[in-house]
């Protein structure tokens, strides 16, 4: 019975893959047919888009990807450590936390990406405004999650560690660090997709390179093939980031099980 059950599950899995394939082929085929038979003015068609991505790949797409990636990584490299340190420090200072709480919450309620024009105004059209935007967005995310992580550590646990004779350093290494790590990782998980959004918003507003720039350039020429090509590249970037997040999550889970 168990055998037949797992057999059914396996064939169910095969069915799902089959349906997915069929759906994908139908969608792309329908799109292609519409483009060929009716009009490719508005929606282009998959073959043209694929050809465009290939052309780009031989002609500077890597450079645009690298620019966007560089903005994200630089911003994350600033935002993540700063946010984590601020969260850890403020989390251990209940007096300051109580006072600053509503102020920080107020600052957080500013939709940060709408500040992009300000950063462009301040820092021009290079990479800097995008890096600043990514850094600020990720700073707040990491700050919030780390701060919350420190707060969730049970006071009694801290006290019992103290009673065992743990030094400040030992407390940080054995208790507070591990307890916060899960929260810091969950902050990073959220920050990664947001860093792509922030970088792309900055590039769409004003830039000379990057994936957002690629999309806007195509849209200014009403080049639908180019727009869809840029959209698919962005989608691939988003999926890649999602997979990175899943990888981090699996690692974090394994760590937590140890």
């Amino acid at each position: 019975m168990a055998g037949s059950n797992s057999g059914a599950a396996a064939s169910g899995q095969g069915n799902v893959l089959l349906w997915r394939g069929l759906l994908l082929i139908t969608l792309l085929g329908g799109w292609e047919a519409y483009g060929r038979l009716v009009s490719e003015a508005w929606f282009s068609r998959p073959m043209l888009i694929f050809a465009r991505i290939l052309t780009w790949a031989g002609d500077g797409l890597g450079g645009h990807v690298a620019i966007t990636l560089a903005e994200m990584l630089a911003g994350l490299a600033i935002g993540i450590p700063l946010g984590t340190v601020f969260g850890l420090v403020l989390g251990r200072l209940p007096v300051a936390a109580g006072i600053l709480r509503p102020i920080i919450f107020g600052l957080y309620s500013i939709p940060l990406v709408t500040l992009a024009p300000l950063f462009i105004f301040w820092f021009g059209l290079g990479l800097t405004p995008k890096i600043v935007l990514v850094a600020i967005v990720t700073f707040f995310l990491l700050f919030f999650t780390t701060f919350a992580g420190v707060q969730t550590i049970d006071r009694e646990m801290i006290d019992s560690f103290r009673l065992l004779g743990a030094s400040r350093r030992e407390m940080l290494r054995k208790l507070i660090g591990p307890a916060c790590l899960a929260w810091i990782l969950s902050g990073i998980k959220v920050a990664l997709p947001y860093s792509l959004i922030a970088a792309v918003v900055g590039e769409m507003l004003l830039a000379r390179a990057g994936l957002g720039y690629l999309l806007m350039q195509a849209s200014q020429q009403i080049d639908m093939t180019g727009m869809f090509a840029a959209l698919f590249v962005l989608m691939a970037a988003g999926v890649a980031i999602g997979e990175t997040v899943n990888f981090i999550e699996r690692r974090a889970l394994r760590w937590r099980n140890l």
């Binding site: 918003v201 195509a218 849209s219 989608m235 988003g238 999926v239």
Partner: peptide
């Protein structure tokens, strides 16, 4: 998941067109 992973702001120029 693919649609969800896409930064939605990238759809803005399509909607404008």
């Amino acid at each position: 998941i693919a649609l969800y992973s896409l930064p939605k702001v990238a759809l803005a120029p399509f909607f404008v067109i």
